[in-house]
Design a protein around this nucleic acid. Sequence first.
DNA 1: TATGAATGAGGATTCATTCAT
DNA 2: GATGAATGAATCCTCATTCAT
Lengths: 231, 231, 231, 231
Amino acid sequence: MTLQTRHNAEPRWQRRKNARPAELVSAALQIFTERGYAGTRLDDVAEQAGVSKGTLYLYYANKEDLFKAVVREGLVSPLMEVRGLIDQFEGATADLVRMLVRGWWERIGSTGHAGIPKLMIAEAANFPDLARFYIEEVILPGQAAMERIIARGVARGEFRSVDPAQVAHLMAAPFLLISAWRHGFGHAIKGELPTLSDGAALLETHIEILLRGLAPASPAPGAANAPGGRA
Amino acid sequence: MTLQTRHNAEPRWQRRKNARPAELVSAALQIFTERGYAGTRLDDVAEQAGVSKGTLYLYYANKEDLFKAVVREGLVSPLMEVRGLIDQFEGATADLVRMLVRGWWERIGSTGHAGIPKLMIAEAANFPDLARFYIEEVILPGQAAMERIIARGVARGEFRSVDPAQVAHLMAAPFLLISAWRHGFGHAIKGELPTLSDGAALLETHIEILLRGLAPASPAPGAANAPGGRA
Amino acid sequence: MTLQTRHNAEPRWQRRKNARPAELVSAALQIFTERGYAGTRLDDVAEQAGVSKGTLYLYYANKEDLFKAVVREGLVSPLMEVRGLIDQFEGATADLVRMLVRGWWERIGSTGHAGIPKLMIAEAANFPDLARFYIEEVILPGQAAMERIIARGVARGEFRSVDPAQVAHLMAAPFLLISAWRHGFGHAIKGELPTLSDGAALLETHIEILLRGLAPASPAPGAANAPGGRA
Amino acid sequence: MTLQTRHNAEPRWQRRKNARPAELVSAALQIFTERGYAGTRLDDVAEQAGVSKGTLYLYYANKEDLFKAVVREGLVSPLMEVRGLIDQFEGATADLVRMLVRGWWERIGSTGHAGIPKLMIAEAANFPDLARFYIEEVILPGQAAMERIIARGVARGEFRSVDPAQVAHLMAAPFLLISAWRHGFGHAIKGELPTLSDGAALLETHIEILLRGLAPASPAPGAANAPGGRA
DNA sequence: TATGAATGAGGATTCATTCAT
DNA sequence: GATGAATGAATCCTCATTCAT
């Protein structure tokens, strides 16, 4: 019987919550980030997880559902944790920035989860609802957290007056670069561009340049040439 | 996916160069960047190009071959143009940086060509040889150019002493972010995150922060906590 | 790529009208009536038609679409023809009834098309929209035609006063019986119940009893026992 | 479908008879008649019966076995009841016919058991041995009973001289029509064709027409055109 | 050159069946 | 006796690729 035959049956699909999913999701994370969404065969995920293909369907209604679970458990929950850390912070904003960037590296950037952004970039156009989910659950909250940090620095006079939204994007941009490298090119070309492979060091430099660039005092070198002349 | 198994026979196949390919590649560029490699059906490419599916095979041995042609031919000309800008420049390094970034935006970032980086991020792991090509033809030259610029600034005392390789990466990171947004999420979610959609403005802020961050004098705020201090 | 991946693509499915369909439908008719809807594998239909599985999808979007085509070409068009015959008839209504019943036998009952009603009975509950289609395109028009005939006989005083709708159903009932036998049991059990296998003779007897039963004069034997006593 | 390939091993399997089966069969009857053989999932049967899927296999070796049990056990008792009515009858044959038809309606036609003929029509070709069983246990005895009744009427001069076998078939035809409607189309299309939905009334009309049609005297209207006359 | 009908391997999904508990 | 998690064969459907015209 095919799908079409299924009309009047009730949607008999709810997730179990007891047991296996953790391993399934982690297997799926690996294969999805390695091969992309369409390139992933559920056979391979099953094999990687050490179960049969049918077992996947015991826990996830279909490929898309599994994919969503991977995104959810890979990014949404780490993000929650990080947010908790931010809220009770009480030191210099610069230190908060440092903590945030290093936290991202430790929990996501240096782990397999960093493959997810790569995946989402590739598949966003094909899965608008997944893209919406990702934006709402990951990007916007992440942005909001970073914006609040920047705004805090500006408010406390630690940073010069900048648009927090823009700076938040720029703060995150190297995350994307590192993710893309580690799970895309870097995998293909070992040894090339070692500076990119050392994400931790690159992020430290990123922080320093960013914080200096946000410092209240000195003007940019050659600022006279800025477009329209506004500093 | 299958990553091309079928044609194991003799290589009785070379690219023609006379007539049609230009339109085919441009049609393919559009579909590939919209839907990704696996998501692209040759039917759609053919329709977009206004030819029959069989015609594609007159010019490209298979899907992979067409894909590679898209990446290759989609990059050659814009890259040349941007590089041309750099070579004979003789002014403040900061202005050179500005010119470079704005040039990227005008020739690549704001055009359909920016879809290619997105595509490569997604498919690098599946097409190692293409990734190598892309790294060698695009990333390394681009990096080298940017590194030379940074080194020039350091040498001339315009920038403080930094690792040109790292800074070059950080300089390029927002390019990736913008490309990913314009050709991935942005397409799916109209209206959200307008700050990201305005690539030109975002890049201006990027330049300003970067250049300030590279200025020789003032220390970063909260510099006491730099790595080596308490985490 | 699976269905889910297909979102933003246009529905690229319209029937071709030039060539092959006739053979495909007749192959499908045979397999469908032999094995039922769910029991029919498209591989088998393709083999029966002497084409590949993929070719089926060149002409019909999916199994259901093929099934509908079978119903349409197998019943709807013969029905149209028969209706034409009825409209210009100008003799005794009894003769019209005879012509109709014999026409059914010749064009449907004795051909493979008689397997379709069997199929529809079995699948109506699983395919409500197909059931609706069948009722609207086959049953209701057929009923309407028969009702008009009965009403004609009543109006002309050839039949006694009866409910044309009920009589139309009763007139059609043996069609169903014969179809079911020829394409269900009869196939399984050769030789048993020869009276049922000779559809033509059975229908002649059916006509005679029906017409006598509709004759204006004589009461039913033992009519006194009729429920409520209405004749 | 596959018509049961899997268990090619030893027949280490006989039916238990103690406890559960009654509920299982009645649950299965409902699902099978609603959805057909292939359309029935054992999950649903188990759920309907309030047991686990595994439990089904404690009582029935496989789906086919359960199906056969449904047909067998679903027919035995109602059939017995109706047959009981006939045997000691001593009145006008017409009244016997009336009693028989009404009895069918009350014990079978208006109950869930009428779903079984529908099921058998659909599956006879796929389950020849079940078809044989059904013919031998249901159709032939039913036919024989009806034939005897008709023959009785003819012998007693109550009916004109007809072929009892043919008339028995024609007598039963509306049973099939009503069963098919109630368990097939009628379920899908509520409200349409109310004349068909009112089985009791339809059968009364059927009886009247049939009995009048069997009355010894008057010829059929337009009898000159009977077969052998001009077509 | 160009076409587009035909192909068939490949992958998602279903569900009857098994079996350890 | 019961359970229900796990299995994997079976089947629909897709689409890259071929080839006769």
